[in-house]
Every structure is written in structure tokens, then in C-alpha cells.
């Protein structure tokens, strides 16, 4: 069953077609990568799917429900979240607090209930804390839990952002260049982590430049070039696709 369907989505910025009638589907429980050279419209596409932009035309369906033009928090409520290429963390919070904030939708106490029943709200907070710590263990950041998130290296911050998305237990997770800024060891860890996530039933849509990561992880690959989808297929098919090779690597073979 497809969890996400993008139908003829178009995004214009003052006459520039950043995304041009792009359509594709993402099957539940798979990893799909969007690749393409810089300026291909990958991040714009992510911004549309996650509700940062409303598309000029076209539809985005999450489990058959139209979500284009939704506010990001509405889509998050439907089980969709994302990470960012340049990171969007809560800068004045600790690593642990960042991850805990990701649990917002899974906790019940409203603010007023919290004010009136502070002990209960504090108990809920402690339970969330445990949940967040177990997520930090999975990404290997539990030692840094109490440190300010800005004190972490770029790669560690990236993992913290992924942990924050994981703790939400989303149905569909959009990752914008998760491997960029990671060292080779961290990249291997990331691939393992994303596989694990997929095996727990999370569908992953990924924008990525690191071809090793893409080819290792993806069930399907979508290639964008100048805002258009020029190819879609399994990693093996994409590596053989001459149009992709020409457009993307100027004639060189991928990998």
C-alpha cells in the first residue's frame, strides 16, 4: 500500500519552476531516495511534502488524504515528520530535552492540566525522559544527554535530530541529507540505524548525495533534474540508466 503519493506537484518561485509536475508513490515500509544534482528541487519537494511550502499545483496524499497546504504541525499529527539539511534543533535546550520535545504528540497532559496537577505532569515528563534516553542510546548519544545541544559536533547534532524524529514514532520520516557532515564511521552507523527503523515499520523518504548510502539503503530511487523527475527505479536500474548518468554525473558512472 502506498503511504505517500505525490501527484503532479509543481512549485513556482517567481517564474522559476523549482519543481515541475513531479509524481511518485512511496510504499509503506520501504526506503525511497530522491537524488539529483544541486538545484534539482529535492529540498523544495521535501518542503512541499512536509508543509513548509504550499505547492503551486498538484496534490500530496498521505494514506490517501490530501495534505498539500497543511501546516507542518497538522502533517506531524498524521504521522509525518522530517529532519533538515542544515539542522533545526532547539538551540537553548539540552540534547535530551530536544529529543523529549519530539514526544509532544505522544503525551497527554495539556498545559492547564499540567498547572493544576503538577505532580502528574511531572511524572509524565519523567516517563518521556526514559523514552528519550532509550532513543539516544540507539543513536549512541546517551552520554551527551545533559549537554547543550549546540555543544555537539555537526554529525552528533544530526544524530540528535534523527533521534528526535525517531521518538515521535512517525509513520513516514523525511530525512534531508542525513549523511552529510558525518564521518565514515558515523555513516555506517546511520545506515544501520535507518535499516532498523525501517524494520520497525517506519517508511523513510530520503534526500541524499552520498551514493553509497543511497544505494545501500534504498528500495527505490527517484531522480530529479532541473525540477523534473527523469527516472525512477531500483538502485541497480538507476545505476544503469543512461539519462541519469548523463544528467547527474556528466557522463561518469554512478559508483
Amino acid at each position: 500500500m502506498s503511504i505517500l503519493e505525490v501527484r503532479e506537484v509543481t512549485q513556482e518561485f517567481g517564474g522559476l519552476l523549482a519543481v515541475d509536475k513531479v509524481s511518485f508513490q512511496v510504499q509503506e515500509g520501504t526506503v525511497v531516495s530522491v537524488i539529483g544534482p544541486n538545484g534539482a528541487g529535492k529540498t523544495t519537494l521535501f518542503n512541499i511534502i512536509s508543509g513548509v511550502y504550499a505547492p503551486t499545483a498538484g496534490q500530496v496524499l498521505l494514506r490517501g488524504k490530501e495534505i498539500q497546504g497543511n501546516k507542518p504541525f497538522q502533517s506531524a499529527g498524521l504521522g509525518l515528520t522530517r529532519t533538515f539539511q542544515n539542522l533545526q534543533l532547539f538551540s537553548r535546550m539540552t540534547v535530551l530535552e530536544n529529543v523529549m520535545a519530539g514526544r509532544h504528540l505522544r503525551t497527554a497532559s495539556g498545559f492547564f492540566a499540567s498547572a493544576l496537577r503538577l505532580p502528574q505532569a511531572m511524572r509524565e515528563e519523567r516517563l518521556t525522559r526514559e523514552k528519550a534516553i532509550s532513543c539516544l542510546q540507539r543513536v549512541g548519544l546517551e552520554e551527551y544527554a545533559e549537554r547543550p545541544v549546540t555543544s555537539l559536533s555537526f554529525g552528533e547534532q544530526r544524530l540528535a535530530e534523527i533521534a528526535r524524529a525517531m521518538v515521535m514514532e512517525p509513520a513516514l520520516l523525511l530525512l534531508d541529507e542525513p549523511a552529510s557532515g558525518l564521518n565514515p564511521a558515523e555513516k555506517i552507523q546511520l545506515v544501520g540505524l535507518l535499516r532498523q527503523l525501517r524494520d520497525t515499520g517506519v517508511t523513510i523518504l530520503l534526500v541524499e548525495h552520498d551514493m553509497n548510502t543511497v544505494m545501500e539503503l534504498s528500495d527505490r530511487v527517484i531522480v530529479l533534474y532541473l525540477g523534473r523527475k527523469i527516472a525512477e527505479g531500483t538502485p541497480a536500474e538507476i545505476q544503469q540508466d543512461e539519462m541519469v548518468v548523463a544528467a547527474y554525473l556528466g557522463g561518469e558512472k554512478i559508483c
Binding site: Q88, L89, M93, H104, L105, S109, S114, A121, M122, E125
Partner: peptide, 24 residues
């Protein structure tokens, strides 16, 4: 020390990221 407070602080620090956590 409450989740509601964390949501409020998250929204104070980074509105976009907060929204992606489902914070209205």
C-alpha cells in the same frame, strides 16, 4: 519539568522544528 512547558519552550526557540513535532 512538564511536557507542555517543553512544547512552549520549543516553540519559543524554533517554531518550524516545533511544528514538525506536531506543536501547534
Amino acid at each position: 519539568r512538564t511536557m507542555a512547558g517543553k512544547a512552549l519552550r520549543a516553540c519559543m526557540i524554533n517554531k518550524l522544528a516545533a511544528q514538525l513535532m506536531g506543536i501547534n
